[in-house]
Amino acid sequence: MCCCLQESEYTSILLHPELFINELWHGLQQAVELVVHGSAPLTEVVLLSLRVSGIALLLSTLLGVPVGATLGLTRFPTHKLLVALTYTGMGFPPVVIGLFVYLLLSRSGPLGQFGSALIPNLFTSGAMIVAQTIIALPLVAGFTMAAVMAVDPLLRQQMIALGATRWQAALTIIVEARAGVVVAVIAGFGGIISEVGAVMLVGGNIEGRTRVLTTAIVLETRKGNFEFALALGLILLGITFIINALMMRLQGKTANV
């Protein structure tokens, strides 16, 4: 189905909008065909994307929610510095995080030199998970912090007055802020499922090993294979939409517990 364009055709698409619309239409058709009939390489790319971003999101949620809640509920000497770092992390370019992880995990890097089984090698899905976890962590922590801080401080005092320990009160506040915490997780997911720079750097876009939807889209676009790239893009959009819809459903349910 996919057809590689010659240079002249490539230029034409950029100059003539009707050709672009034509490509978009074909891309949509191809996306539907790919989803309906399936293809082994596509399934592999989609599953790897979901696995890498899913594990990274799980790790960043397990770390980010407690970190965000701690920043939102407590005050300590380095609190302002950590909040500033979290906000900085929320706007950090993913490709720069990819570069840091690349340098950390490379064989002569601070972590890579140990050659430990616990430290993932470069150009593996493990390295991509590390990079995506670092990208999502400040997003999850920052939005969780904001959600927790939005809960009336008197509620926490009332919970303690009713006999809650500090931990029980903190947990209650996180549960009260659950709609915002779900937003934090959605933001973290959005930040990594669509991310390309970091996974390209640390994963290397190796077919069958580290190729995910975003890096495959870049590759197919560079090859001038617009229809297939669009098809992948539409599949990525569809996956993002479905997962966000599921999370919003969860958010709606938790709002009425």
């Binding site: 509620l155 009713l162 209650t172």
Partner: peptide, 22 residues
């Protein structure tokens, strides 16, 4: 307190809250 400071849960869940803490 002057402000009830209830949780975003049902009336029953709010009333049971202190029992669950214990």
């Amino acid at each position: 307190s002057q402000r009830p400071m209830l949780l975003n849960r049902s009336v029953q869940a709010n009333v049971e809250y202190g029992l669950r803490l214990r």
